[in-house]
């Protein structure tokens, strides 16, 4: 799973929630932070490799290193900053054009939901973009923890569906309870998997 989005939108904070269910004040990420997280679904356990990329522009050029071959991409924006919403759309374009056509389950995540009083991007807008582009949409707050576990669970489900469905059977995955969800090779075996709509 790769987290993409402008600097300061809360990617690292989300990752921290995923990993440890904690919220700290963070520093801007340098390069990319890597962590793993095990998610239990009813019939399978998935091990997520989470790539928390740096939103800073100077690292833009190295992010392909991390999102290539990702099964899930979270495009994160800050609901209280319109420019981060625009930036998320740029990320989407890049994902679509360059690297992973359809092989990746993409979420649009409006973070900092706790800052509703300063909201600059409405729920409808986020929802609209998502359905237009065939993305999943959710609003979260890394600060309060709201919708974090829902997000992780549904990412796990969709990814599992997407991979499992394409493989034409789940047995393989059930035999090995811990599944490597990210492969470094660019020749993605699931490249033909179609986009999943909400």
């Amino acid at each position: 799973m790769v987290l993409l989005g402008g600097s300061g939108v809360g990617k690292s904070s989300l990752a921290m929630r995923f990993g440890r269910d904690e919220f700290y004040t963070t520093s801007p990420t340098v390069g990319c932070a890597y962590m793993t997280r095990v998610v239990h679904l009813s019939d399978v356990t998935l091990r997520f490799e989470i790539w928390d990329t740096a939103g800073q522009e100077k690292y833009h050029s190295v992010t392909p290193l991390y999102y290539r071959g990702a099964h899930a991409a979270l495009l994160v924006y800050d609901i209280s900053k319109r420019e981060t919403f625009i930036r998320a759309q740029m990320w989407l374009k890049e994902l679509e054009n360059q690297y992973i056509q359809g092989s990746t389950v993409i979420w649009l995540v409006g973070n900092k939901g706790d800052l509703a009083q300063n909201r600059q991007v409405s729920v409808q807008e986020g929802q609209g973009l998502a359905s237009h582009k065939g993305l999943f949409f959710i609003e979260t707050s890394a600060l309060s923890g709201e919708h974090i576990s829902e997000l992780l669970q549904s990412v796990a489900h969709r990814v599992y569906e997407s991979i499992g469905g394409h493989q034409g059977g789940l047995s393989e995955w059930q035999e090995t309870p811990i599944v490597e969800l990210q492969h470094r090779d660019t020749s993605n075996p699931f490249a033909s998997c179609c986009k999943v709509g909400p």
Binding site: M16, T26, G31, Y34, M35, Y59
Partner: peptide
């Protein structure tokens, strides 16, 4: 402080 979060590759 982010380095404490996991493994960094930069």
């Amino acid at each position: 402080s982010a380095f404490q979060a996991g493994e960094i590759w930069t």
